[in-house]
Amino acid sequence: MAWLVLVISGLLETAWAVALDRSAGFSRLLPSAIFVVTLVLSMAGLAYALREIPVGTGYAVWVGIGAVGTALVGMLALGESTNLPRIICLLLVVAGVVGLKVFH
């Protein structure tokens, strides 16, 4: 259960990062509210998962999911550049996250 919560928390990290960008420095209400809610839920999920998963592994997986998710949203929905080197780097992050789970 801790791993499932950790993955969901990582996805929520993506949500709060995108909402933070869209809040325009907290000048827009809806993205700012989404940021606060998803940030709290993401942190709460991380805290719950760390009761069973070592902090080094849990935090690295959480950040990796959030970073890859945010980069993918940027490339697929926000017009950020998509090129082979970026995709390879994201795949390396995914490989590292999977490796941390497999060798946990």
Rank of each mutant, 00 (worst) to 15 (best):
M1E: 13
M1V: 14
M1Y: 11
A2G: 13
A2P: 11
A2N: 06
W3L: 05
W3A: 10
L4P: 12
L6N: 03
V7C: 02
V7Y: 10
V7D: 00
I8Y: 03
I8S: 12
I8G: 07
S9W: 05
G10C: 10
L12M: 08
E13T: 14
E13M: 12
E13W: 13
E13G: 14
T14I: 09
A15S: 01
A15N: 03
A15I: 06
A15M: 07
W16T: 03
W16I: 08
A17Y: 05
A17M: 01
D21E: 15
D21T: 15
R22F: 15
S23D: 00
S23P: 00
A24E: 14
G25K: 05
S27W: 11
S27I: 10
R28F: 15
R28H: 09
R28T: 12
L29N: 15
P31Y: 04
P31I: 00
A33Q: 08
A33I: 15
I34R: 00
V36D: 08
V36P: 08
V36N: 05
V37P: 11
V37C: 10
T38L: 04
T38K: 07
L39C: 15
L41Q: 03
L41I: 09
S42K: 01
S42T: 06
A44I: 09
G45C: 05
L46Y: 03
L46V: 13
L46K: 01
L46W: 08
Y48G: 11
A49N: 04
L50T: 04
L50V: 06
R51G: 15
R51E: 14
E52G: 07
I53P: 09
I53Q: 05
I53H: 07
I53A: 01
P54Q: 02
V55F: 14
V55P: 08
V55D: 07
G56K: 04
T57K: 11
G58V: 02
G58F: 01
G58E: 07
Y59A: 00
A60E: 00
A60D: 01
A60Q: 03
V61S: 07
V63P: 05
V63I: 12
V63Y: 09
G64T: 03
G64H: 04
A67S: 14
A67K: 13
G69F: 00
G69C: 01
T70W: 04
T70Q: 08
A71E: 04
G74A: 08
G74L: 10
M75W: 11
M75I: 10
L76P: 11
A77E: 10
A77V: 10
L78H: 08
L78W: 08
G79Q: 07
E80H: 11
E80K: 06
E80Q: 09
T82W: 15
N83F: 12
N83A: 12
N83Y: 13
L84Q: 06
P85H: 00
P85I: 01
P85E: 03
I87R: 05
I88K: 07
